[in-house]
């Protein structure tokens, strides 16, 4: 297994270079270093000298991808792309365009992102699996039919609607929790209750329907018939046998997102005033802060790759037939 993991990590390097290059090209197609300088220095009274100074200080006065004036390897290394990318692979994110340390921001903001993402993930998984098993249990009855209809309706509604609707009902009309904000200690619960419920409900349709499909496929198999023939209760059949055997497709979708929980949710964090990494990324995009954007994209890619490796490993844990070689 170790060889497999090492191989996967090595495969990740060209992927990460590719992601980095793509982010770089996409960003600089839309923004020039001069645009970035103007955005940071403000709109009024920005002189060409101030722009040149800003770029020089941050290394944006180099060519983007290829330095024709340089000689030898410097043609490639004396570029913005190379200089900014190399440090990323050592997880040195550097400073945001406003001068603040990105690594410090990431570690500070990871907590609030996890505070909302982890409960949504765990509670969501619990709810979706149970709903799916319920529909599978009552397959071909009115419960199953209306369950699927409800799932399709829930899937069809924008997540923004859940957020605004939730804030309107629970906070504005019923006055049960704050509309937005984030606090430490025990106050965290009252701020997170609504975003967590909204997070769970907004994804309930798609997930419950997907798990139902998986369970229905399993339910038709011979071992289920055997289990029933042995006189096991339906609940025991579903929770002990079907659930366990449906784990591979479930893990495929679930484990891969675990590392990404660190990155938080872009819209949820903005609307609920959660100072997490999703909110940080949105701010960086709006303020054309390339240093933060590339760091967050890089981090996202790394976490995604980690998630895929974890998924593969998890297969070996739930299915002894799987070997990673």
């Amino acid at each position: 297994m170790l060889n497999y993991i090492i191989r996967r990590v090595l495969y990740a390097i060209p992927i990460l270079i590719g992601v980095n290059l793509l982010t770089f090209v996409l960003f600089f197609v839309v923004n020039t270093p001069d645009d970035m300088a103007r955005m940071q220095l403000g709109i009024k009274r920005v002189t060409p000298e101030a722009i040149a100074k800003w770029k020089a200080e941050r290394g944006y006065d180099r060519p983007l991808l290829y330095s024709a004036q340089a000689s030898g390897a410097a043609k490639v290394t004396d570029t913005i792309f190379f200089q900014k990318s190399v440090a990323l692979f050592a997880f040195r994110f550097g400073r945001a365009d406003d001068g603040r340390d990105i690594a410090h921001e990431i570690t500070t903001r990871m907590g609030p992102s996890l505070a909302i993402a982890v409960p949504v993930f765990i509670l969501g998984l619990f709810v979706y699996l149970n709903l799916a098993l319920l529909m599978a249990f009552f397959r071909a009855t009115y419960v199953d039919f209306w369950g699927v209809v409800t799932c399709v309706v829930l899937m069809s509604i924008s997540s923004l609607f859940y957020i605004i609707g939730g804030q309107f009902l629970v906070s504005k009309l019923w006055h049960l929790v704050p509309i937005s904000g984030y606090g430490g200690g025990i106050d965290t619960f009252k701020f997170l209750a609504l975003p967590v419920v909204v997070g769970v409900v907004s994804a309930a349709g798609a997930n419950a329907r997907w798990y139902r499909t998986i369970f229905l496929e399993e339910i038709g198999k011979d071992y289920v018939r055997t289990a029933r023939a042995k006189g096991l209760s339906e609940a025991r059949v579903l929770f002990r046998h079907v659930l366990q055997n449906a784990m591979i497709p479930i893990l495929t979708g679930v484990v891969v997102v675990i590392p990404l929980l660190f990155l938080g949710g872009l819209i949820t964090e903005s609307f609920f005033g959660i100072p997490g990494l999703g909110s940080y990324t949105i701010d960086a995009i709006n303020s054309q802060d390339f240093a933060v954007v590339r760091s967050m994209v890089f981090l996202g890619s790394v976490l995604y790759i980690v998630g895929l490796i974890l998924t593969d490993i998890s297969y070996t844990l739930v299915d002894p037939r799987v070997r990673l070689e």
Binding site: L176, S180, G181, D187
Partner: peptide, 21 residues
């Protein structure tokens, strides 16, 4: 525990939806 925490944080002299300590 979660429900209790919610109740505790929501109770007190201030309103439940008060975002301030």
């Amino acid at each position: 525990i979660l429900a209790l925490a919610l109740a505790i944080s929501g109770c007190g002299s201030s309103a439940w939806n008060n975002p301030y300590p």
